[in-house]
Amino acid sequence: MYDTTRPEMNVDQLHTKISARNVQVFYGTKQAIKDLNVEIQDKTVTAFIGPSGCGKSTFLRCINRMNDTIDSARVEGEIMMDGSNIYDRGVDPVQLRAKVGMVFQKPNPFPKSIYDNVAYGPKIHGLARNKAEMDEIVETALRGAALWTEVKDRLQESGTGLSGGQQQRLCIARAVATAPEVLLMDEPCSALDPIATSQVEELIEQLRSQFSVVIVTHSMQQAARVSQKTAFFHLGNLVEYGDTDDIFTRPQDSRTEAYISGRIG
């Protein structure tokens, strides 16, 4: 199990995992992100908040180069991860995505068994040498996603037969099974009921001990509950970035304040 007895790490020791410099994103001729600079720290939950269409999901999809799959999307500037630019010519997006996992807004389990869903990533990346190792990876990932006790007796059943909350946790298990370094979550709770949401939120808190987690949410309460750092996006601009407590209690920018107090959104 996860080592929860380990003492909390000192904030000073946390190094920067991802740093974005002058990032611009265009869809065709439309600019979705303007001149964005941000530093995301390791072993931290960073929340992106802002009104819909503000570019938060777009930026999230830049971090694992998912935007490459959209023909009209174009990314400028640089996003450094552990000191190297992920948009360099030599970087293989396939390898990058193995390091940067992603969980989507709507649960999207493959129409395969629960086991195969979780084992898919390790299988394609060749992380297990034999069946026993694979079983262990699957179990660990499902335990990590707090799903193991619910599904351990029906691993061969279809992943699409689970409830919405279970499906989303299955997707999280699928993402953590490849042992990523960063986990991106795009509004992971928006399709879930309150109980499932709180389960997923608990999970995020646990995952922080191993990954850097970046979560996009439209719920400010959620951001306040789960994150240590918060970034506020508005109309393609990163307006304000800082400790979650500061953003919610002492916003520096009038737009942030307006959003938090519910006047824009």
Partner: peptide, 21 residues
């Protein structure tokens, strides 16, 4: 749980950079 590198950056990073991978 022993040989599965789930303790984040360090072993993960090694793993992705390994020749085998």
């Amino acid at each position: 749980m022993t040989d599965f590198p789930n303790d984040g950056t360090k072993s993960g990073g090694q793993q992705w950079a390994s020749e085998a991978f």
